[in-house]
Amino acid sequence: MSSGEPATVFHMEDGNKSSYATAPPPAYAAGTSSAAQAPRKIAGDGVPLLLRSGAAGFRRCLSLIDFVLRVAAFGPTLAAAISTGTADERLSVFTNFFQFHARFDDFPAFTFFMVANAVAAGYLVLSLPFSAVGILRASAAGVRLFLLVCDMLVTLLLTGGGAAAAAILYVAHWGNIRANWVPICMQFHGFCQRTSGAVVASFLAVLVFLVLILMGAAAIRHRR
């Protein structure tokens, strides 16, 4: 008897009479198992949407982080440029006619530092549309390469400006005994506080740019 035919069941009754009834067929056809009837698990469940498409999703994910970091780095660079450009303090000695003046443009290093941060802030705004293209088009390798080169140049500019300003601030805070340079921050507290905070903010932006460079290189290299 094949497994697909209905089974016959015999019932014993009084009087040695027998009758038969046909049992209902099984719920599933022969050769199929209950495991086959279970719903199949969709491939990729539990994986973020940006990562389901392999290398393309990986590049989109990096581009999204890249966009967020550029927005985050805009604040420190703009704050550093504004804080340095408004650093101005006058110190009166004896009378108001005899004053010492400390202003950012009295130091060429601070002028260079302010310009570097202003250029970096402007570049970050202009680079946002290019970063958005990387999110929409995962295969835009040319745009990523362009941003990578520009990020490296701006990072060098910010690092040079921050290093020059930090050197001037070190002398302003501690002086130099051998050169008979006295520390001016003992008198010009406000000037030193503003410029010191600007240097810290600028170096935070440099760290963000370093992360952007690493992510850009990883996105270009990860093509498969």
Rank of each mutant, 00 (worst) to 15 (best):
A80Y: 01
F112M: 07
R70M: 15
R103D: 10
T86G: 04
F203P: 04
A165F: 05
L78N: 11
A79L: 09
Y170H: 12
N180T: 08
M186R: 15
F94I: 15
S131K: 03
R194E: 02
P24L: 07
M215L: 11
R103T: 12
C192N: 09
A38Y: 07
K41R: 14
S196E: 06
G54P: 02
R178Y: 09
E89N: 01
C61A: 15
S83T: 09
D151I: 00
H11E: 08
H101T: 08
V143F: 03
R178N: 04
F107Y: 12
A141G: 05
L50A: 15
R137D: 15
S2M: 07
V206G: 03
G142Y: 02
A81K: 04
A102N: 02
E89K: 01
V171T: 02
L136V: 11
T84Y: 00
L212R: 05
F146M: 08
N176V: 00
L136N: 05
F67H: 10
A80S: 02
Q99V: 11
I82D: 10
Q187N: 11
P25N: 09
R103S: 13
V125A: 10
V93L: 14
S53H: 12
S33L: 10
S18I: 06
F112Q: 15
H189N: 10
P39M: 10
E89Q: 09
A73M: 05
L212A: 01
L64E: 11
A56G: 12
P26M: 09
G175Y: 00
A102S: 04
F97G: 15
G54I: 06
M1S: 13
G161L: 05
G4L: 14
P129Q: 03
E5K: 14
F188C: 03
N96L: 14
L212G: 04
T159G: 12
N180A: 11
S19K: 13
S202N: 03
S196G: 05
E5Y: 10
L153Q: 09
F104Y: 14
G161W: 07
F97N: 15
I213F: 01
S19R: 12
S63T: 13
L147C: 05
S33R: 14
L158T: 05
S139V: 00
A164H: 06
Q99E: 14
G54L: 07
R137L: 12
G190Y: 08
A55F: 02
A38K: 15
R224L: 04
R103F: 13
E89W: 02
G134F: 00
D66K: 09
S34C: 08
A55Y: 06
R224Q: 07
D106C: 03
Q193H: 11
L156N: 06
P26F: 08
F98R: 13
L69S: 12
M1I: 13
